[in-house]
C-alpha cells in the first residue's frame, strides 16, 4: 500500500475562539483531494467534535489526519486529565462540561456519540492524569 497523506495540527487549548479551526482546514484539504462530500462531512464532523473536546476538556493537543487509499484515520492526542469511565462518556447526554462551556454552546454530551455515529471505527485510549488518544477510522467507498 502506498504511503498515506498526513495532515498535522497543533490544537491550542488556551483560546476557545480558535477551537474548530483545524477541522475547517481539514475540510478544505479533503475537498482539494476530490473526496465525496459525504466522506468529507463525516471526517470533518468527527474531527471537529474531537478537536473541541481537546480544547474544553484537555487543554489542547494534536490532531493527525492520515488519508490512505481506502480509509481515513484521525488521531487526536492530548495530555489532559483522561477519561475515567469511557463507557459512561460514550453515553448520549453524559457531560462534565462547566457552565462556562455550556454557555459557549457545548456540553450536550453528544460529542463522543456523534464521533461514533459518523465513523466506521472509534478507539479511545485514556489514562487518568496522563491523557487521551482517540483514533477514528472512516472507510472510503
Amino acid at each position: 500500500m502506498s504511503e498515506p497523506l498526513i495532515f498535522h495540527f497543533d490544537i491550542n487549548g488556551d483560546d476557545f475562539s480558535t477551537a474548530g479551526q483545524a477541522s475547517v482546514q481539514i475540510k478544505k484539504n479533503l475537498r482539494q483531494l476530490g473526496l465525496s462530500p459525504e466522506i468529507i462531512r463525516r471526517v470533518s464532523i468527527a474531527m471537529y467534535e474531537g478537536e473541541i473536546n481537546m480544547v474544553i476538556h484537555a487543554h489542547g493537543g494534536t490532531a493527525d489526519v492520515k488519508v490512505f487509499e481506502n480509509y481515513i484515520e484521525i488521531i487526536l492526542a492530548d495530555n489532559g486529565p483522561g477519561i475515567k469511565d469511557i463507557d459512561l462518556a460514550m453515553k448520549e447526554g453524559y457531560s462534565t462540561a462547566s457552565d462556562t462551556t455550556r454557555s459557549l454552546g457545548f456540553g450536550a454530551g453528544m460529542g463522543l456519540p456523534n464521533m461514533k455515529r459518523y465513523t466506521d471505527d472509534i478507539k479511545i485510549d485514556s489514562i487518568l492524569d496522563v491523557g487521551t488518544v482517540v483514533t477514528m477510522r472512516i472507510n472510503i467507498s
Binding site: 475562539s17 454552546g105 450536550a108 453528544m110
Partner: peptide, 27 residues
C-alpha cells in the same frame, strides 16, 4: 447546543441560533 446540531445531517439546512461565537459558523 452545537453537538445537537451536529447529531443528524440535514440537507441544505438553516441554523437558527441565539448563540454568538465562531463555533456557530464552524459548526
Amino acid at each position: 447546543l452545537m453537538s445537537d446540531v451536529l447529531a443528524y445531517v440535514k440537507d441544505q439546512a438553516v441554523l437558527l441560533t441565539g448563540l454568538v461565537n465562531p463555533q456557530v459558523v464552524r459548526t
